[in-house]
Design a protein around this nucleic acid. Sequence first.
DNA 1: TCTGGGGTCCTAGGACCC
DNA 2: TCTGGGGTCCTAGGACCC
Length: 419
Amino acid sequence: MFALIDCNNFYASCERIFRPDLQHKPIVVLSNNDGCIIARSNEAKALGLPMGAPCYQYKDLIEKHNVTVFSPNFALYGDMSQRVMTLLSEFSPDIEIYSIDEAFLKFHGFDLFDLQSYGEIIQKKVKKYTGIPISVGIAPTKALAKIANRIAKKFPKQTNSCYYIHTEEQRIKALKWTHIGDVWGIGRKHSKRLQSIGVQNAYDFTLLEDCWVQKNMSIIGLRLKHDLQGIPTLDLEEIQAKKNIATTRSFETNYTTFDQIKERVATFAISCSEKLRKQQSCCSTLLVFIHTNGHRIDLPQYSKNCIIHLPHATNSAIEITKFAIIALQNIYKPGYAYKKAGVIVMDILPTLTKQYNLFEESNPKHPAIMQAMDTINNTYGQHTLKLGIQDQKKMWKMKQEKLSPKYTTNIHDIITIHC
DNA sequence: TCTGGGGTCCTAGGACCC
DNA sequence: TCTGGGGTCCTAGGACCC
């Protein structure tokens, strides 16, 4: 049996833990630069605030219903996620952390357990220890556990936030209840296509011919079909080193000068190098892109990227930044109002198996410098030690008007209780 | 005025090798 | 009239996830 544990309205729930005055009140969390709505409490969903909608378009609705708005606080969400995952890992030795707010557990050898009550215990413990409400779905396969989880989330009272699919009748009923577009792995395109041939729900999908599914939805679709039929096809997956790493941001305002963008690109490159070192990898290729604001059709548009193959694999902030700036020089054109830039590092390989170049050697001092930088920044906080090319005066900032304190990761932000 | 930021996998077709 | 047989690698595009 597999369980899928999913935190309810995760970012919104994280914010509310430290604001008990907001219980049962509508709250939303925005994306970077306070752009779009990316998380909503149930009350906010009920008001009709859509996922992904630009916040300014719903200003009136937000004010009218006194919706509390938060800028994203990823330090808080990341830390809360770790706490939840640590608790979950106590319930099974086999865990796959699927995303910041979801994890699969595998129950192998749990034959004597009453998994319904076990799931309810998980739910209660996570709620009690972290304050985060979760839903638990348990079923013989991962795809079915996803569906069970939806049911638990939809009917928290009837299910005690835990739904367990263990009979054939339950499986079929659950599949018939699940609209085809809500199935894990079926996106917009496939959903539309399937509906056009009369597939309305997940059960209809499992009745299709294998060869049709494989031909039209590739092997991925076929695996999903089998998993939904109750044949375990998808197993827990190991945490793997990332194959691509990106740092990209929109700017708060339009940037026009090369130097403004150069500082941003350098900072993004350094961020990529930090992520590489964290997973003990090097990259051999990098991509830099810049573009203007695609929503402003009244302004001249420009969008370009540049890919550079590095002379040798590296994770040195100094080297990656150097090449990122060269890439930017290749694509920057004056006269445009730039809104976004990004750095993506690719062709990633483990530092230990790095292949050296016979003629072009990397600077032997860099690994030690990077290690020193990482140690200092991990101890005294991000951006304590920067490269000279980065913004020293903190001129650059993201729009974050509604940022909550870093309650759990910064000692100065620790919660105060008035007795 | 304002519109996010990450990731993964699969397939077909072209270019190339012997 | 007829024109072999077996591979690999790379890329772009399409689909999906949170």
